[in-house]
């Protein structure tokens, strides 16, 4: 989830034609590159596609993939799909939310972690499943969460 500062917004715009139907594509690419959509980026996308700000804002809030606020360095996603639910994934969300001090969908104040939930990752055989950044954790238990949080915090500390 490290934002790629060197990606240029203009370069993203050039990937698609400047038409209203490019709106979602552009917002997805901005989201992927910066892990959120800043007001400047949204303005630029609107100017480029000719979509009014109010409509772009409606799109940004309608779809769950878009975030208008900066996100944490690490994203922890807990699957709340049916298979995971039956195997107690709500307890895992509760536990993480207690440890990190944020609710699902929120980012910690130090911008280190974002806690998210997702509905089925298609790995139901491994339920309950947690995805930390890109890594899948199978059959998650409280013990595995301890290990995960430890690894992630070490990763943050080790960075200059």
């Amino acid at each position: 989830m490290k934002p790629a500062i060197d990606i240029d917004l203009d370069e993203i715009m050039e990937r698609y034609p400047g038409r209203p139907e490019s709106l979602i594509f552009l917002m997805q690419d901005v989201q992927a590159a910066f892990s959120y959509i800043s007001p400047e980026a949204l303005t630029l996308v609107c100017d480029y596609t000719g979509v009014p700000m109010s409509q772009a804002y409606a799109v940004a809030t309608f779809y769950q993939s878009f975030s208008l606020e900066p996100r944490g360095e690490h994203e922890i996603k807990v699957c709340l799909g049916t298979a995971c639910h039956l195997k107690g994934s709500q307890r895992i969300v509760d536990e993480l939310s207690r440890r990190l001090g944020v609710d699902a969908g929120q980012t910690t104040e130090d911008l280190k972690y974002t806690l998210e939930t997702v509905n089925c990752l298609g790995a139901c055989a491994l339920a309950p499943v947690v995805v930390a950044d890109e890594d899948y954790l199978a059959n998650v238990t409280a013990k595995k969460l301890n290990k995960l949080l430890k690894e992630l915090s070490q990763d943050i500390e080790e960075r200059p």
């Binding site: 209203p20 139907e21 490019s22 709106l23 409509q55 799109v59 309608f62 779809y63």
Partner: peptide, 9 residues
Amino acid sequence: TSIEGRAGE
């Protein structure tokens, strides 16, 4: 509606 680039209602 979503393919057309809008909120998918």
